[in-house]
Design a protein around this nucleic acid. Structure first.
Lengths: 338, 338
DNA sequence: CTGAAAGCGCTTACAG
DNA sequence: CTGAAAGCGCTTACAG
């Protein structure tokens, strides 16, 4: 049952042509006559031949694999991104090799692995070590793009949504909804994403002449976000609205508010998230949130990466604006309907 | 900045040894004297040498990559499995190449890709085409194990939880809780997982002398599960408990019950799921469910797969029992405390 | 369009 | 333990 290994040499022999001819038939765009082509195809089918991708990759230096490094998959945004990335990449003839970066993994270790597998390009889609990893791979000459993460210095390619604008939109919406005691549980403030959303939000509020009653770093952790929620609402002067740095934390915030503190969302406290992952639309949360246009972000990421692989394109920083998705977790300003 | 490609030949030259020596130093378990070893290591570091995994893979026939085919990542069980799989595999020196099987992809296409990348083994962790894909790869001589899916015929290796037992446990728990009008929205009944849970459940109920008031195929779809919930509860004689074939659907069932039909869970209707994904523990759902011991399942999967890669081990069917995790979505039988 | 030959970067018997 | 040589399965100038 086990298919014996059949090589291009075998096919060539069977078809009565040279190995070169076989190679050409299986190389898109290479020149081969119709006659040769059909002889080769026929022989290949008879023998069950399949070109050895590894050998081809070694010769051409093109492995057709992209390394995707991701930190953890519990926040639904990342599995969704992975799914889209796979589709977009597959459409271009690439495959994904997964590199989960646990926090106790060393950056050097991961970089070693990425490089030794000769990935043609790298997409980092996570927190913490992204920048380090990206920088080192970039320095080693392999194209990288940071997905959903930026960095101010350096010249790495990156695609994010327009986080500053998103934060500002939330500020406007909340202010228009009549809120004046607004807190922010931010995304990790060491990440551009967390920082930009916070900045846009604070600036937006400032334009209305107010400041957030609190800004605390939730570090993308549900546990930390819950703790902050508790301490925020423990005071007699609790906030009447909370903007949370991503949906994943926002779910924990809502749960804490409702089931632990006995508060109503949005009657007592409005909550707004960021991402618009599928769960945000589930009725239990019905979360008002800024939608990250994941499809566009993924397409842009793939475009930039492949451009860099094919020729040494300049670095780019792409920001894609995302709309506010109004649902039921935050008071709606007059005149707004869902 | 771009590191020039440095080969084992270069290192050999610099270290004053043969290429074979270099190869041996980088091959775990190969014999090389301490002197040679240190010369080579030194030269390698100076030159920034890194063995080319592709070349090695081509020679040895061992790519050290495992193909993981997965259908979709919205059900949190699969990203979690992926994360665990990556860790377990990495610990053994393997990496994951991802193959998302969209429904409109042809089985043949996917199999072609898997084979041409010379993956050493395959794990299928999804629905629909799993069996087809697995069978063809197995026939081609490449080791496969079905994760969270079985099949009655054939001799493919597979690891699941003990789904029959799980279904039975749910039946006992619900009966003990005083329920007598119990419906089942099953997992896809063409999958062993869906079928086994259903059978165990029906059998379990039968032992108490009752039958489910309805068994409908939810096909792992939230949308379908919601529709079934609606029609089930539309009747004056609605069920007082629903066992749902997986957590992912159970969330939709609970949302439909509460927010659309205005029913209380568990006061009007008890709901029980299957999987115990992280979301099940979120207070909004607080779902009573059968826990699939994902860690053990993943470890078993990796063990079986690697055993088959290393030597031609016999096929295995592993079933790992999982406990009922009692939370708040179903009435608790007297005497039970959380 | 086609074939003979060289080569990709490594590993593996085979001698020593 | 070590090196020279052959070879893994393919692609790519180079001639024709």
């Amino acid at each position: 049952m086990m298919a014996d290994k059949v090589t291009s040499f075998d096919v060539a022999r069977q078809a009565g042509v040279s190995q070169s001819a076989v190679s050409r038939v299986f190389t898109p765009g290479a020149s081969a006559s119709a006659a040769t082509r059909s002889k080769v195809i026929k022989a290949a089918e008879e023998l069950g031949y399949r070109p050895n991708t590894l050998a081809r990759a070694m010769i051409t230096g093109k492995s057709r694999v992209i390394g995707v490094v991701v930190a953890y998959l519990e926040n639904q945004f990342y599995p969704m991104a992975l799914e889209h990335l796979d589709h977009a990449l597959k459409a271009r003839g690439y495959h994904i090799m997964l590199f989960m970066a646990k926090n106790d993994d060393s950056v050097g270790q991961i970089v070693e692995e990425l490089m030794s597998y000769q990935v043609e390009g790298i997409i980092t889609a996570s927190v913490a070590m992204s920048n380090d990893i990206a920088k080192r791979c970039h320095d080693a000459g392999i194209p990288v793009v940071l997905f959903n993460r930026g960095q101010d210095t350096g010249n790495l390619a990156q695609v994010t949504s327009d986080n500053v604008k998103g934060g500002r939109t939330v500020a406007n919406f909340l202010f228009a909804g009549g809120h004046r005691k607004i807190a922010h549980i931010s995304g990790w403030l060491e990440s551009s994403t967390g920082l930009d959303r916070m900045r846009g939000f604070v600036d937006g509020l400032a334009e209305h002449g107010i400041a957030p009653v609190a800004v605390e770093d939730g570090r993308y952790s549900q546990k930390i976000a819950s703790e902050i929620t508790r301490s925020l609402c423990d005071s007699p002067d609790r906030p009447d609205a909370i903007f949370v740095g991503n949906d994943h934390m926002a779910f924990a915030v809502m749960d804490t508010l409702r089931f632990e503190l006995g508060l109503s969302v949005p009657d007592d406290v409005s909550v707004i998230g960021y991402d618009d992952v599928p769960i945000a639309a589930w009725p239990a949360y019905d979360l008002t949130t800024i939608r990250q246009p994941i499809n566009q972000m993924v397409n842009a990421t793939v475009d930039v990466l492949l451009a860099r692989i094919e020729n040494d394109a300049a670095s780019e920083r792409i920001q894609i604006p995302g709309p506010l998705k109004i649902r039921g977790s935050a008071k709606k300003p007059k005149g707004f309907t869902r």
